[in-house]
Design a protein around this nucleic acid. Sequence first.
RNA 1: GGCCCCAUCGUCUAGCGGUUAGGACGCCGGCCUCUCACGCCGGUAAUAGGGGUUCGAGUCCCCUUGGGGUCACCA
Length: 478
Amino acid sequence: MTVRVRFAPSPTGYLHVGGLRTAIFNFLFARHHGGVFILRIEDTDTERSTQAAVDQILDSLRWMNIAWDEGPYFQSQRMPLYRAHLDRLLESGHAYRCYCPAEELEKKRKAAESEKRQYKYDGTCRHLDPKADPAGRPFVIRFRMPEKYPDHFDDLVLGRIPIDEERLDDWILARSDGMPVYNFCVVVDDADMRISHVIRGNDHVANTPRQILLYQAFGYSAPQFAHIPLIHGPDGSKLSKRREAEYRKLGMSVSVQEYARMGYLPHALFNYMTRVGWSAGDQELFSLAEFIQKFDLDGVGKASGIMNPEKLKWVNAQYLKAEDDHALAQKLVPLLAEKGIGTTADDRLAKIAECLKPRSNTLVELAEKATIFFIAPTAYDEKAVRKFWNREARAWLEHLVEVLPELPLADEAAMEERFKGFAEKFSAGNMGKIAQPLRLALTGSTASPSIFTVMNILGKDECRARIRRAIEELGKLG
RNA sequence: GGCCCCAUCGUCUAGCGGUUAGGACGCCGGCCUCUCACGCCGGUAAUAGGGGUUCGAGUCCCCUUGGGGUCACCA
């Protein structure tokens, strides 16, 4: 049997990380088994579905490099298929028209609630003669619960799930406007698309019995179900778009595209998300090829996980360090442009990326640190000024400006040798005593890549200008 | 509240009857060092509780507790 799986988001907003994880699990499962990964947009809720959301979801998936093999299919374009299936159920008696007004049903529901009773549809229209339909009156289509049904189903990750205790009534298949409802469309579509495995969040387990009954009513065999654990926010509850403000404070988000904005690499996000709820021994970092080779449902745990932005950051830092310097430069260009720095992804920018990547967790951080190579410091760290800019420092910086023309800036190893000589002369061999005042002059702070790398990237002219400016400032200190 | 699911360090997890309960993030030390990082070395920290089963339970069963999910003419 060929594996066919699908990711079926509803386009009511951007792609959120929980959905992303479901997409990843399906994608990896398909690739691992040489199967087909299908994308289906569940837009039967015309009130809430938007084209903008569809675009955002597709963009996020593309950004994550999660490529689908079929689709996207849109449920809104498959009405004839649903109609035909509805008719089939109506004809076979597995469904019937219900004319109960929504308000009345709502009243009954409220009543049940106040009496602390479980609400169930009372079956008012269950035994109406289908031929005696009161023409013109609005109706919904309900499923006719069979007498007999399976007492459980087997979930690939959760195991045996009982359904005999399930609260099942004659639920609605199609709204009064004729639009079929989610629980109906999934089944028709999954059957029509010959889905072999339904891998989805375990917030869907309660829906599964109904869907299984529908398969049964149609005479279709049901796919295998795999309900993966949800990902929760730091407070332990389901990730919610409404909590976004709180998440932002913690350096996280529910929005996939937000991670792009925050400077995360798509594969880092991919790696992190996959590893919550799935593992293969002690390994933390996987290439896509490794994920495909190792991913399977038996590695999926049952317990839900909590999103940990700190670890995501670490994973991202790992991939940042491993990223090619020119590729990084490429990604940096637009971020620098936002800061008003116009540059191309040249060798110089690659060199900047190289020395900054072990010092950054995200692309945004990297771009931030990179500015110092384009814009001379306008202020100097006060504490550092007091500590490093003294009379000796001034003498040393003045000497440096003088000998600058003959220094081999491009040869960092040779520069280090020359500096050892300077250290002997100006600070009794203490490299720190000459490096720090210079670093302060060049960058305005006491933290930067190797001073030799900084000089190399800046070049002689820029170094001279910055050092002179520093000497000037130093002079004002008296 | 009914029903369902889950339960190993703060977090992600390994473990699939016999381990000094392992790894990772974080945190704390140390090393490296021109600063900051990276890296390396070390440390901190867990089997929710109670009953069983067994020669032997993190591993199997039951109960309690805790957490989560779900109860629409949403998906």
